[in-house]
Design a binder for these strands. Structure first.
Lengths: 117, 117
DNA sequence: ATAATATCTGGAGTAAACTCTAAGTCAAGC
DNA sequence: GCTTGACTTAGAGTTTACTCCAGATATTAT
């Protein structure tokens, strides 16, 4: 797949895809004989995964660390798992905070509904 | 209260407090005879509210709109309520997305735990 | 009264995460 | 064979949300 096709598929710009590769957020993409990127299905899965995680606010640093370990092979599985667990716990905290803010927002809206005092 | 006291109370820098005031994220703070800010308890409540909402990712633009309406008086109550409802709905969607990502993370961690195939 | 510390303003600088530009290469259509 | 459009790279520019700085004024301690 060309960069344009992948960009369209995920609604990302080609610039962003190149940027993600440059900073190691996705693996280095293979090139054809003339140096043009050719994305595999595996590459696409990474992109989709990374997009999802970034969308939830996982830090780029944790994700680049994760992908670097992944590329080092099976013996890094335990370390990769720890990264996921760590980020999972942070995400749970974050969701809990957001729920608190949501409660507060609902309370404030209720105040606007009631007070014909 | 001085700006330093408020900064300490909420763990924000004085620069950030001045910045929030400059962009209308909190109301204009009253000054003493020599032009130095004197924060009231009401000012502090605004700061705490805004911090909480910003922490949940509510856009600055919506919050500046909200505070501008608030300062225009009681007749803007309905419009302010609509802003809160709108942001509440966006926050619910966001939390739901985060929960989906959390599920995915848990699934991936489970894969790391199992596969002694 | 003087030195040290805190505050003021306007504006410049910073970091993150893109986003765009320039200059060059390459494949496809006419 | 040449133009058009997509692709390449390195590097500059943008946006958001602060954060810092300079120069001036004010308050506090000695």
């Amino acid at each position: 797949m060309t960069i344009a096709e992948v960009a369209k598929r995920y609604g990302i710009s080609a610039d962003t895809l190149r940027y993600y590769e440059k900073i190691g957020l996705i693996p280095r993409i293979g090139r054809n004989k003339s140096g043009i990127r050719d994305y595999t299905e595996d590459d696409c899965h990474w992109i989709e995964f990374i997009r999802c995680m970034r969308g939830a606010g996982l830090p780029i640093e944790a994700l680049t660390r994760y992908i670097a370990l992944f590329q080092q092979g099976e013996e890094t599985a335990e370390e990769r798992k720890l990264i996921l667990i760590d980020e999972k716990e942070k995400l749970e905290k974050r969701i809990s905070e957001l729920n608190d803010t949501l409660d507060r927002l609902n309370f404030k809206i209720a105040q606007y509904n009631k007070p014909k005092l």
